[in-house]
Amino acid sequence: MSMIEFHDVEKYYGKFHALKDINLTIDRGEVVTIIGPSGSGKSTLLRTINGLERISDGKLIVNNFDLADKKTNMNRIRKNVGMVFQHFNLYANKDVLDNITIGPELVLKRNKTEVEKEAMDLLDMVGLADKAHNYPAQLSGGQKQRVAIARSLAMQPRAILFDEPTSALDPEMIGDVLDVMQQIAKQGMTMVVVTHEMGFARKVGNRIVFMADGQILEDAHDVNAFFDNPQEPRAKEFLSKIINH
């Protein structure tokens, strides 16, 4: 069953054409990695999925909600679709535990003690149970990102979007974050990941989308075949540039 459907989606910022004729259907449980040069529209594409950016034309269905329809309540989509940002965006005025519980408490109106117990389990899963009462400023980048993932999971979403989750991290922190993401993928979560981590794309992803200039140039279900033998010249060029370093 499909979780996310793009039909002829266009996105403009003024005159700038950010997304061109996007057609993409993502099924439940799929782990899709989106790669491509910077400025190719990867993040914009991701941000349209939970309504942080509105599409200009076409049709976008997420979890059976029509995002092009102005009457659609975006908060109902965001309840079901989590997001992890490049710069974490943890709430600076809340400790780690509150960062995780505020969503379930305010949005899902759930019981505080119950939510806190689940939050502690999630922190345990990401290996940060001892940091529950620290503030974001006291954490390293890798720790912040793992908290951000736990925050997203606490809403029990149907899908999670990752916008370059490891790009702002020190190299030695990246592994911990990718491990957590791999764990979530194994549990069957639908994931859309914009990343430059080709290892992750190859090992964890079961589909790869290559974008350039606001277009989807390649959409491969066979990830290994894509890396070994990309069809598009632009994809070939992109891969040769990043893999030879």
Binding site: N75, K79, N89, Y91
Partner: peptide
Amino acid sequence: TGQMEGARSVGLTYSQ
């Protein structure tokens, strides 16, 4: 602006 985006992404309303 990331603080607002972070909050909206978990479904909090603008006023929350």
